[in-house]
Design a protein around this nucleic acid. Structure first.
Lengths: 201, 201
DNA sequence: ACTATAGTTGACCGGTCGGTCTAGGTCAAG
DNA sequence: CTTGACCTAGACCGACCGGTCAACTATAGT
């Protein structure tokens, strides 16, 4: 049949979609199984628990996102500062598509899970924390390239990248709360002002 | 008895604490009642539903927060720019206290609810949205006062206040995810760079 | 003293939660 | 043709979910 060996993958994909559209707590194992066309026994054959599925999904999501970031967004075909704006374009597009499809801006898949689970599940919290940390790396690289090219002043790239991630997450949350992707478009470019100079951090 | 007529208030306080420490979905009506020392029937005597309790709690929380903001944080005893930094001090102190008491940084009570519920409950989403909008007002006032005093350049106070709220929320989420209040202390002051000039929005 | 109202109590509802378990099916290697 | 590993199936577990209800008590106004 068409589903011979992708059972595990279907569970991951379905969980990603449902968690993103709603939340971790609101989506049960039962519903994930139903939507994926998988029986509960199979679920627990592949994943020891709901949390383990979530962690696996997070890891996979981060890898996909990082690849997109490196291959599509941060490509060196335009100046580094422009690449950061292109990241915001992507964020805007993501939110717009979600709203067109579901009627709701769903925010950031990682930020959502972080907000909901950080006080309640250390494993998930650590995983999302690592995602945020890993996300800072390519941003830092772009910032340093921009500084080297003279497009930006000399800066504390580590602190700046961290502040920018925070701002991106804040924008996602505001767009979600207002159910309006335009917030990202209007307030996004201000991210370039968020430069932490050496010694300020 | 000690509890003669504060039943309703105890429910609101308990709900606020539990929702803040964990999440909306993870905390049931049952647990709120147990913790508040109230029977379920009484709960539904005062509130038609869990959602209504939440909305009432949100309204109350916002009023308390706004009063603290106006009476303690944004008082005109120091220059306007310093007052914004004092808001960050308060945020840092809130997170530190939460961590000392529970072991976890719990983020922003409004942001948490917004992130978890915005795609699932329009009533709650609209309520938190209004909190964010209302929060922009005093910030805008401070910004305009700073600009009038020459401490800041002429700016788009509306867009700037909005960006600052987003950044504050992002910082809260990062502090929660990293379980580290120092993130607010280190990255907080960068909020002052987030100035949107007229015509940029 | 009587009545109306506000507040309290706990049993109860159907449904779902995350997770377990046993039995059976599928398939490739020996 | 058999074995054993991998996978599927679905009934089942106790606990809990948000919410309802009818009976009860305490209190205040007349």
């Amino acid at each position: 049949m068409t589903q011979v060996r992708d059972t595990k993958q279907r569970l991951l994909d379905t969980a990603r979609e449902l968690f993103y559209a709603r939340s971790y707590e609101d989506v049960g194992v039962q519903e994930i199984c139903r939507e994926a066309g998988v029986k509960k026994g199979s679920f627990y054959h592949f994943f020891p628990s709901k949390r383990d599925l979530t962690v696996a999904m997070l890891d996979e999501s981060w890898i996909q996102f990082r690849d997109m970031l490196l291959n599509d967004v941060f490509v060196r075909d335009i100046p580094p500062v422009q690449r950061i704006l292109r990241l915001l374009d992507m964020q805007y597009r993501l939110h717009s598509e979600a709203k067109a499809k579901t009627g709701h801006v769903s925010g950031c898949p990682f930020g959502n899970l972080a907000g909901e689970m950080s006080t309640r599940d250390e494993v998930i919290r650590e995983r999302v924390k690592r995602v945020f940390r890993d996300l800072e790396v390519p941003i830092r690289d772009v910032l340093e390239e921009a500084a080297a090219a003279g497009d930006l002043p000399e800066l504390d790239s580590r602190a700046t990248a961290c502040a920018m991630v925070a701002y991106l997450e804040g924008l996602s949350l505001m767009a979600k709360t207002h159910n309006d992707p335009d917030i990202v478009k209007q307030l996004g470019p201000a991210i370039l002002k968020l430069i932490v100079l050496p010694g300020e951090g």
